[in-house]
Simulated scan of single mutants.
Amino acid sequence: MSEILHSPGVLALELSPGATPSSFTLGREAADALARHIADDLLRLLPAERDGAGADQADLLVLGALYDSVQLLHPGWPLFAGLSELAHHSQALAGAEGGRIVAFGSHAGAMPGDALQPLVSDPPSPLLLVPWTFSAPEALATDLGARMESVFMAKGEAGRATADFLMRTLGVRLEHARYLTRHDLCALICSQLEHAGYSALWQMLEFALLYPTRSGEASTARGQKLVFRDGAVHCALPVYADWAAAFGAGRSREERVTDYAGWLFELRQYVALLGAHGVAVRFDGDAGATSLPAQRLAEPDPSLPPPTLFSHEARGLGVVVISVAQIAPDRRVRLLAHAWPLDQAGFDVGLPQFAARYGASEQLVRLGGIELDATADDLAVTLPGPAMH
Rank of each mutant, 00 (worst) to 15 (best):
F152I: 08
L128A: 04
P78E: 03
G82I: 04
P112N: 05
P112V: 06
P131N: 00
H74L: 06
L72K: 08
W77D: 14
A154I: 04
L140Y: 05
Q117H: 06
A158G: 15
A81P: 03
A141P: 03
F152M: 12
G105H: 06
G159V: 12
A139T: 02
H88E: 04
S90C: 15
A81L: 04
A96I: 09
P118C: 08
H107L: 10
G105W: 01
W132M: 10
L128T: 03
Q91W: 01
G109H: 01
L83N: 01
L119A: 15
L129T: 03
Q117N: 09
E138A: 08
L140Q: 15
Q71S: 07
L79E: 05
G98C: 11
G113P: 06
L73V: 07
L119G: 11
P126W: 06
S150K: 11
E138H: 13
P118E: 10
S150V: 06
P75V: 02
A87T: 06
A154R: 13
P137F: 04
F104R: 05
S84Q: 05
A136Q: 08
F134L: 04
Q91L: 14
P126I: 07
V70K: 06
V102H: 02
E149S: 00
E157H: 12
A87H: 09
E149L: 04
M153I: 11
G99V: 10
A146Q: 15
A141M: 08
A96D: 15
E85T: 04
A96M: 15
A154K: 09
G98M: 10
A154Y: 00
L116F: 05
V102M: 14
L83G: 02
V151T: 15
S106H: 06
G95D: 10
K155G: 11
R100F: 05
E149R: 05
